[in-house]
Each structure stands twice: as structure tokens, then as C-alpha cells.
């Protein structure tokens, strides 16, 4: 896989990618239908939806109803893509996702934007540190924590025909570019980004950039750390996780989520039986979010490269 990471942001903001890819998918596939809960303007889809009222459905501020309508549309033969902010896409409408979509066998793709500290100035009420934990309990769900614009495009294309409930957590702003344009990131496959023998850092979403920075800092201190991008949190690529954990014997899991129920939990569950590595985490402690700029929040909740460096060194 062509990795082009150099620490610089991709010029394409996630919201612009969503605003382009959703209409493009709808143009390709007559069964794509997009629903939003009064947040179309946040991802640049409103103008297109206004001109295509049978393909872009604004449900108003009623997330529970929106998920149910999407599930009903799936039963009618559509492939719905639903968007709202992460907290509403998860805890607000969770029973509807669980029963109307999951249990009832109505396949939908749910996009929850601004996961974790990406909610920044919307603050603690809008800051889901628990969305992955909730979706992980949904049998056969697919959970994707997006790293860069190219991955978002690749994943959206794969989700439309993938069975079950798919949950995509992604920011709206720009993020560090990791993958070359046009590179496909197959769902379910962890992506090694950097090799190293002393420890492995398993990271997802915005924490991939922090992990890459941390690995560079560690190297300058004579410590060699691998970085593996686990953007598919469920189904977890257990084989790759085991292989890297076994090789290094030390693993740090970095996620923009509560330490309970997310990627750290998933990795620990995968490794517990094998007993091949000591594992630590860089994740949000068991607490609620708060308001502020994202860089402040990353420091406040311990989600920076420096925190990863400390945790890796602590395992040596």
C-alpha cells in the first residue's frame, strides 16, 4: 500500500469529501438514498439534496425517526446512507439502530461526524466517547474510524453494498494525509504503516497521526515502534493484531474514545487469551467531554503523541 504520510494535512476537509462522494454514489447507483437530520449544511450536501428531493431526504431533527425511515427504505430495496453528529448517530438512536436496522435485517450505513474531541466547540454534550462501545455490541456491525480523505472515499464506496449496519465515525475538518490518492483500504484489514521491533502502536482515526509522530520521536530516542492503523474496529483484524503484538511483546492502543468499550477493549479481548504482549492505552479516561479547541482537548484528555511516547516507554 502506498503510504505518503509526511505529517501534512490533506487539503480536502472530510466534510467536503462527504459532500462530493454521497451525490456521486447516488449518481452511480439508483438505490443509494441519503438521509440527514437537519445537518446537511454541515457536510455540504444540502444544495444537491434540495435539487434531488427523492435521493436526499431531510428528516428534520428526529434521529430516531430517521434511522427507522432509513431501515424502512432498506426494506423497500434502497441502500440508505444516514448522517448526523456522532452522539446522535449512536446513543440518541441506538435502539432504532439496534432493532429497526440491525435485528430486523435492514442494511444501512450510518455516518457519525465529529467523534470524540473532534466535537471541539460543540462541547461535552456533542462529544461521543462511547459511540464505538455502543456499536460494538451490535452483532455483525461494521465500525470504521476514518484516518484521511482517501480512506473515507474508499470506505464509503465499500459500505454501500456491504451487508449489515455500518458505522463510520469521521471528523469534518482536514486531517493528516496518510494514503496516496486512489489507494483502496479494504474494510477488515489493519494497515501496517511503519515497522518497529520494541513496541507496536495500534491506532485509529485522528490518533494515527499522533502515533506516527510518536514513533518518530521514539526513534530519536533509540526506540523502534511499529504503527498499525486499525481503522476497522469491528470486525477486528485479529490476525494482524496478534502478529504485531507477538513480535514486539508490547502494545499501546491509541483511540479518540473512552478507554472502556472501544479499540483498546477490542485489542485486549483479542490478546487476552494468547498472553503475547503487555498492553497499555492512550484513550479518554472514564469521564465526560468538555468544550474547547481540539488541540486543547487532545492535551486535556491525553490524546497526543507525547502521551503515546510516555506509554510506550512505560512498557519497556
Amino acid at each position: 500500500m502506498n503510504i505518503v504520510y509526511n505529517g501534512q494535512n490533506d487539503p480536502r476537509a472530510f466534510k467536503d469529501v462527504l459532500g462530493q462522494v454521497i451525490p456521486a454514489l447516488a449518481a452511480e447507483d439508483e438505490n443509494i438514498i441519503y438521509l440527514d437530520a437537519d445537518l446537511m449544511s454541515c457536510i455540504g450536501t444540502k444544495k444537491w439534496a434540495d435539487g434531488n428531493p427523492t435521493r436526499g431526504i431531510n428528516c428534520g431533527i428526529s434521529e430516531a425517526n430517521m434511522i427507522g425511515v432509513a431501515a424502512g427504505l432498506a426494506a423497500s430495496g434502497f441502500k440508505p446512507i444516514v448522517h448526523t453528529f456522532g452522539p446522535f448517530a449512536s446513543r440518541r438512536a441506538f435502539d432504532q439502530v439496534f432493532l429497526s436496522a440491525g435485528y430486523a435485517g435492514n442494511d444501512i450505513t450510518v455516518i457519525g461526524t465529529d467523534p470524540g474531541v473532534c466535537a471541539a466547540f460543540n462541547g461535552g454534550t456533542h462529544m461521543p466517547f462511547e459511540d464505538v462501545a455502543l456499536y460494538r455490541t451490535l452483532p455483525t456491525a461494521t465500525i470504521l474510524d476514518i484516518t484521511d480523505a482517501n480512506m473515507l472515499i474508499s470506505v464509503l464506496k465499500q459500505c454501500k453494498d456491504r451487508p449489515g449496519v455500518k458505522y463510520i465515525r469521521v471528523g469534518r475538518k482536514n486531517a493528516a494525509k496518510v494514503f496516496a490518492d486512489g489507494e483502496e483500504t479494504p474494510i477488515g484489514k489493519a494497515i501496517p504503516l511503519r515497522e518497529g521491533k520494541d513496541a507496536v502502536i495500534f491506532a485509529a482515526g485522528i490518533m494515527v497521526h499522533e502515533a506516527m509522530q510518536a514513533a518518530e520521536q521514539l526513534l530519536s530516542q533509540g526506540i523502534s515502534a511499529a504503527v498499525v492503523n486499525i481503522f476497522t474496529i469491528k470486525p477486528l483484524d485479529t490476525e494482524t493484531v496478534l502478529r504485531y503484538a507477538k513480535a514486539a511483546g508490547r502494545a499501546v492502543v491509541a483511540e479518540n474514545h473512552n478507554k472502556i468499550g472501544g479499540l483498546y477493549s477490542a485489542v485486549c479481548e483479542a490478546l487476552a487469551k494468547e498472553g503475547v504482549a503487555r498492553v497499555d492505552y492512550v484513550a479518554v479516561e472514564d469521564e465526560y467531554g468538555e468544550v474547547g479547541p481540539q488541540d486543547y482537548l487532545q492535551k486535556r484528555f491525553g490524546l497526543t503523541a507525547a502521551h503515546i511516547v510516555e506509554k510506550v516507554k512505560g512498557l519497556l
Binding site: N65, I67, G68, A70, G72, L73, A104
Partner: peptide, 25 residues
């Protein structure tokens, strides 16, 4: 049985989605 129900209230939205989908089709 055309739709799964049981958690009360949910069938209403599901039926809306089905009716909307049928109309669009």
C-alpha cells in the same frame, strides 16, 4: 410478516420509510 417490531414506536418510522421507498420506486 412484513416488518420486525416490538420496541414500541419504531414501526411507525419503518412504515414511513417503506411507504416513501414504495412511492419513489
Amino acid at each position: 410478516v412484513d416488518m420486525t417490531t416490538g420496541s414500541l414506536g419504531q414501526g411507525t418510522s419503518l412504515a414511513c420509510g417503506m411507504a416513501l421507498g414504495d412511492r419513489i420506486k
